[in-house]
Simulated scan of single mutants.
Amino acid sequence: MYENLVVSADWLADHLDDVRVVDVRDAWEFDGIGHVPGAVSIPFDSFRSDVGDEGMLPGTAVWTDLMNEAGIDEDDTIVAYDDTHGVFAARFLVTAELYGHRDLHLLNGDFSAWSREHEVEREAREFPESEYAVRDPEHSPLVGYEYVLDAVDRVADADAAGDGAGDDVVIVDTREPEEYAESHVPGAVQLDWLELVDDDSRGLKPRAELESILADRGITPDKEVVLYCNTARRISHTYVVLRQLGYEHVAFYEGSLTEWQERGGPVEREA
C-alpha cells in the first residue's frame, strides 16, 4: 500500500485506464457535480458500521457486496478521493487495507485537484459485477484498548525518568485543539489532522514542512506512533500521511476516544 501512496491528479490522468477510481462523496455530488471519468460511487456512509458503532469496520459481508457491485477485484489498483481534503477517502483506503487490498492510493488535493485541470464525467459507467475475495492484510495497524493503556504507561514512565529513557512511543490526538483541551488520553500530544493540509491546494503540505510539523510534536519515524480521534475518520488521514512519509510503526486505535471513554479509560483535561 505504501509505495506512491498519495498521487497527483496528473498521475491519475496518466494512469486512468489502469486503475479503478472510487468516489466516496455523497451520491448526489457524484451525479450532480460530476466525477472523475470511470469512477464508481461508494459513499462514505456505505462502508461504516451501523449506528452505535460509528467509525468501525463495516463487516466482511458488507465490504464484499460493495466491491462486487462496483466491479472491483481484490488485485485492482484503487485511487480514492472525496471533496474534504482526503479524510473520507483515507478512511476508505484504511478499510480496504484491513480487508487485504494491497494496491491503494489517495488522490492528493481531493476532487477539486482533478476538476481544476481535467474534465469531469456526469454519467455513471456500468461495470460487470466482480467476485471480490477478502484477504488477511499483510500488516494490520489495528490496536485495542489494552494496547493503548499500555502505551499510556510507557509514556508516563518515560516522563518520570526525565532523561528520555524508554521514550519510544508517542500517542497522537488528531482532533481540534478545543476537543483535546476538553478531554484526551493521558500523555497524548495534539496534532489536528488539518495541520498537514495546505489550504490552497487542499492536498498535503510539502514533505519538508510535514516533517517539521511532526518533529515539533515529537512524532518522529524512530518512535511507535499511536493514533486516535473520536471515530477513526481523522486518524485515517494522518495514518496515510505517516505511511507516505515512510513511518513504519504506526498503530491505529479504531475505537478511539469513543471506546476509550465508554470503557472508563483515564483522561486528562486542560483549563
Rank of each mutant, 00 (worst) to 15 (best):
W28L: 07
W28C: 05
E29V: 07
E29T: 04
F30H: 13
F30N: 10
F30G: 09
F30P: 05
I33G: 01
G34R: 03
H35Q: 10
V36K: 01
P37V: 12
A39T: 06
A39V: 01
A39P: 04
V40S: 08
V40R: 14
V40P: 15
S41D: 05
I42T: 03
P43H: 14
P43W: 09
S46W: 07
S46F: 01
R48D: 14
R48E: 14
R48T: 13
S49L: 01
S49R: 05
S49T: 02
D50L: 03
V51S: 08
G55V: 01
M56A: 06
M56L: 15
M56C: 06
M56R: 14
L57V: 04
T60M: 03
T60Q: 13
T60N: 02
T60F: 00
A61W: 00
A61D: 15
A61P: 00
W63Q: 05
T64Q: 13
T64A: 08
D65N: 13
L66Y: 01
M67K: 00
N68D: 14
E69C: 04
E69T: 13
E69F: 02
G71D: 02
I72K: 03
I72L: 10
I72M: 10
D73M: 10
D73F: 04
D73N: 15
D73G: 07
E74Q: 15
E74F: 12
D75H: 15
T77L: 12
T77K: 12
T77C: 12
I78E: 11
I78P: 10
I78C: 07
V79R: 11
V79N: 11
V79Q: 13
V79H: 05
A80S: 13
Y81A: 12
Y81E: 09
D82C: 13
D82F: 04
